[in-house]
Design a protein around this nucleic acid. Structure first.
Lengths: 209, 209
DNA sequence: CCTCATTCCCGTACGTTGTACTGAAAATAG
DNA sequence: CTATTTTCAGTACAACGTACGGGAATGAGG
């Protein structure tokens, strides 16, 4: 039987609460105090379940990254499709991606699947790892753009307002004719190619098409 | 004639000092106090030259991004080559890339050049912007990997040590055979394809090759 | 020369963050 | 009971960005 005072929570519970905060209010809102308050716990109690905030972020990634076979099999396009779905559901992932360490079975499973998919290429291991990292970075960039476009018009935030003003002033100077054309276009034109198409071409390019 | 007390520094000087700190000791070392100390100024004096730290980072990007024609002309491969050189020289750029606003002539010039290069594609403006953003994200990912590999073996840092230990434990479980192969390979195999090759294929892929 | 308006300098101070320290609280084992 | 072990959580600290406000240094007008 376990000795000592019984834990009031479990590690997955704490991590789930952190994910909920980040999903709802963004990564900046995820502070140890906020998390403790949401759990009804003392701030320092969290450190029973987590060494520090970095580890908490690692665990959030791991917990969120259970592979869903609905997105396909062990080919790169399926993996990338799955990553995009994850990041769209959890918009904090791209920003938290740097400095992450993949330690748990979910993320190691993803890595293994990616290596399997790259097996027929016969590339050296380092090159495979690099390709997987580049693909993840690509998905993060793509989703970041996607989310930024979804926020366009909704957010004003003072800061982007000034940015747009600066851009328009620069355009008015006449020194950037192509930029002027793009900005006058608005969003009325046809939508850009789909994620599937871009991702497929990117994979082909990375594999030496 | 300008009235009032004369400034003790100039804005480019302040920005240059900030770049020097980040180049030498990393982005985390770039605090307002450290910057003020390096300049021999009071901390709050910095806010005469810069609205806040975000703007300082924007100005650092702008100041660093003077285009060097030695890297080529107005084609995408030249632009990407130039971006990589910048990021290798200033390793803090990839990490500081999110939330940046390109306001100055250097960065707007880069944007204009990129749009010119994409002109023959006939794509809508939004798609052009997206391609440029994705390319920048790709370069940032690539350089991040490059720098991480350069640090491999040099840094131990306690945190990566544990990471490697976890990986080896996972590999020892036998559940990840491909990962095991890659880790046993070491870095003895042939180097991965060059940046030029990967970048060229990525551009071709993004343009619909 | 004096005064005033203007501009920059910068010490102090506040709120927020992650987390080290410490001791109380709650369980089991003997 | 007592001892041991584990978790809980209040207090406290260092570091951060920066708001505030008064002092200092200049040119302009009399």
């Amino acid at each position: 039987m376990p000795r000592g005072r019984p834990p009031a929570h479990t590690r997955p519970q704490v991590v789930a609460a952190a994910i909920a905060v980040a999903d709802a209010d963004g990564l900046d809102a995820l502070t140890m105090r906020r998390l403790a308050a949401d759990l009804g716990a003392g701030v320092m109690s969290l450190y029973t379940y987590v060494r520090d905030k970095e580890e908490l972020l690692d665990l959030m990634f791991e917990q969120v990254s259970e592979f869903d076979p609905a997105y396909g099999g062990d080919d790169l396009l399926s993996l990338v499709r799955w990553q995009r779905a994850l990041m769209l559901r959890h918009p904090w992932m791209p920003a938290a991606l740097p400095n992450r360490q993949l330690g748990g079975p979910n993320l190691l499973g993803y890595l293994e699947r990616g290596l399997v998919a790259l097996e027929p290429t016969g590339l050296p291991g380092g090159a495979k790892m690099e390709i997987l990292a580049l693909l993840t970075g690509f998905v993060a960039s793509y989703v970041t753009n996607e989310l930024a476009q979804a926020r366009a018009g909704v957010t004003d935030s003072e800061r982007v307002g000034e940015h747009v003003a600066r851009l328009q002033a620069a355009v008015a100077s006449g020194a950037y004719p192509q930029l002027a054309r793009v900005m006058s276009e608005g969003t009325t034109t046809a939508p850009p190619p789909s994620f599937e198409a871009i991702a497929a071409r990117m994979i082909a390019g990375l594999l030496g098409g």
